[in-house]
Every structure is written in structure tokens, then in C-alpha cells.
Amino acid sequence: MPQAHSMDLRQRMIEAREEGQTVAQVAKRFAVGPFFIEKLPQRWRECGTLEAKPHGGGD
């Protein structure tokens, strides 16, 4: 199972977007998918946190 991205890394991604970098630039810089970058602000607005969601079960 992949590890969750650290809070520090998540915050740096948000800051990079706020500085005007595009989703593609931030995704490449931090080696993550662009969808993840797009979802971070939504996670903040809806949940008030950038923390990873708890694992839903399974293996």
C-alpha cells in the first residue's frame, strides 16, 4: 500500500500553487499526479485539513 504524503509536503504543494505554479508544474516538481494537486484545496475547503483520509479497510 502506498504511503500517504506528509503534511509538510502537502503544505508545500499548496504554497507552490498559491505562488502561481500550474498544476502540471507542481505535480512534476513533487512527483505526484495532477489529480492529487487539484484535490488538495477541495480537501481543505470541505474538511478543514490537508491530512490523508483514513484507510477504508481491505488489505
Rank of each mutant, 00 (worst) to 15 (best):
M1Y: 08
M1L: 12
M1D: 14
M1A: 14
P2I: 04
P2Y: 05
Q3H: 11
Q3W: 07
Q3R: 13
A4Q: 12
H5V: 14
H5Q: 11
H5G: 01
S6E: 11
S6M: 09
M7F: 14
D8Y: 08
D8Q: 11
L9V: 15
R10Y: 01
R10L: 10
Q11K: 13
R12G: 02
R12H: 15
M13K: 00
I14P: 00
A16L: 03
A16Y: 02
A16D: 08
R17A: 02
R17P: 01
R17G: 03
R17N: 07
E18L: 14
E18Q: 14
E19V: 06
E19H: 10
G20I: 04
Q21T: 07
Q21M: 15
T22I: 04
T22R: 06
V23T: 06
V23K: 04
A24G: 14
A24R: 14
Q25L: 01
Q25A: 11
V26H: 00
A27H: 00
A27P: 03
K28G: 08
K28N: 13
K28V: 05
K28Y: 07
R29D: 14
F30P: 00
F30V: 05
F30Q: 03
V32N: 07
V32E: 01
F35I: 10
F36M: 05
F36G: 00
I37L: 02
E38F: 02
E38C: 12
K39V: 12
L40G: 05
P41K: 06
P41S: 08
P41Q: 07
Q42C: 08
W44S: 13
R45G: 04
R45S: 13
R45Q: 13
E46M: 02
E46S: 06
C47Y: 15
C47S: 12
G48C: 04
G48T: 03
T49A: 09
T49H: 06
L50G: 05
E51Q: 12
E51I: 06
A52G: 12
A52L: 07
A52N: 10
A52P: 03
P54S: 09
H55V: 09
H55T: 12
G56T: 06
G57Y: 04
G57H: 06
G58W: 01
G58N: 05
G58S: 04
D59K: 12
D59T: 09
D59F: 12
D59Q: 09
